[in-house]
Design a protein around this nucleic acid. Structure first.
Lengths: 231, 231
DNA sequence: ACCTGAACACCGTTCAAGT
DNA sequence: ACCTGAACACCGTTCAAGT
């Protein structure tokens, strides 16, 4: 049995760090909280430190710089993707599920996709596991090695770009989003027909289909193209 | 005939702005100089203003905020893409050329591709011209309208993501780049075979092929997929 | 060894005050 | 009307000084 600390002895700002001492794990998880609610731009060394009741300088004992912190966050996010065992009869659906899930978890952490495009190759353990899964699914499907290697690259690029687009309007209220959409629509409707004849004539089709349909369309193009590589 | 200004009357920092007064055009072109040499992160309101011999506050008479300046820059960059008249027999090559050129000009202005992913739709006059061209080429090729509309979206996304990847290592010296590559290679060579069997066994293939081959592979997947939509 | 306050060199944007 | 210095509220990172 321990006697409780009197409230006037608790320094509010230090409470958390007094109970839970700093650690890499704590830092990254605190940063992820910030990411989910406020987006990547809000994940600054200073704001993360503030949440932990300390100063930004303290984080540098665990992390070399902000980019490294962002990369650690990314791998934890990628860790939310669960990977299946290859089922050759189902390779298309397996790849589709993996890519869709990847877009989903990236978009759920607004801005983190930027980190993917900044990093040369997936080096975190979770990113490696996803890459391993994609490679083995495509290989089990009977595609030539070269197509497998290139396809994994292209599919990852595609998923990342889609996630970036999805989180582009993060931070706007629903009203702001609606206003933006109607502004864009008005703008396009006002374009001169003689300079942009095809665009103007296609306006109804161009505004058709939400993100899902467009993304699925693109993914199917890629997968159809890939299937054609089967010997 | 005008008498030259004596050197001691020229205030160096103000020289440019004294001769050429501020204008939106001058601001955007100055920003583009900075972009080409130093990358998007260096294009700050303060640095652009400094180049013009003034303070950041002065730019706000011509531009609402930094994002708007970045968008104006983007459209000038897109303007470097020249658009062809549709040639139905050659639609595949025309699209390939357009997309390759787009990646080229975006990558030549390191970081500007980020602005594309941030903007909801292409609204600048030059971006509209490129969109009009892509739409008309695909339509003239005989693709259904819906496929045309979706394809333009997907192709633009693909080109933008590729350009982002290409400018990812901007700012590094050749030595730093080489060191990074060899570090990544060493890391991958050290991975445990039991956890990443496919990855490890495919290492030689994975490091095969440069950016061009991978990008062409992906573009061909998309175009093959598209061609299949022809009725 | 671990932590941190203060400092340095940057940001975007606003606004009162100048011409 | 056009321009701007100074201020405000932020950054990432370093480093000497503390325990």
């Amino acid at each position: 049995m321990s006697i409780p600390v009197p409230p006037w002895q608790q320094r509010a700002a230090r409470e958390r760090s007094a109970r839970r001492p700093l650690s890499l794990d704590l830092i990254v998880r605190t940063a992820l909280e910030l990411l989910e609610t406020d987006g990547l731009d809000a994940v600054s060394m200073r704001k993360v430190a503030q949440r932990l009741g300390t100063g930004a300088a303290s984080l540098y004992a665990y992390v070399n710089n902000k980019d490294e912190l962002h990369e650690l966050m990314l791998d934890l996010v990628i860790g939310e993707i669960s990977v299946p065992d290859p089922d050759p009869a189902n390779w298309r659906q397996q790849i589709k599920d993996l890519i869709n899930r990847q877009v989903e978890v990236l978009a759920a952490h607004p801005g983190i996709a930027r980190v993917v495009l900044r990093t040369p190759a997936p080096t975190g353990p979770n990113a490696l596991a996803v890459t391993e899964a994609m490679l083995s699914i495509l290989r089990a499907a009977g595609l030539p090695d070269r197509a497998v290697a290139f396809a994994v690259d292209i599919l990852a690029l595609f998923a990342t770009a889609a996630a970036m687009e999805l989180s582009a309007d993060f931070g706007l209220t629903d009203e702001q989003r609606d206003e933006r959409i109607s502004q864009v629509e008005q703008y396009f409707a006002s374009l001169p027909e003689d300079r942009f004849p095809t665009l103007v004539s296609m306006l109804p089709v161009l505004s058709q289909g939400d993100y899902r349909e467009r993304f699925d369309f693109g993914l199917d193009l890629l997968l159809n193209g890939l299937a054609a590589w089967k010997p």
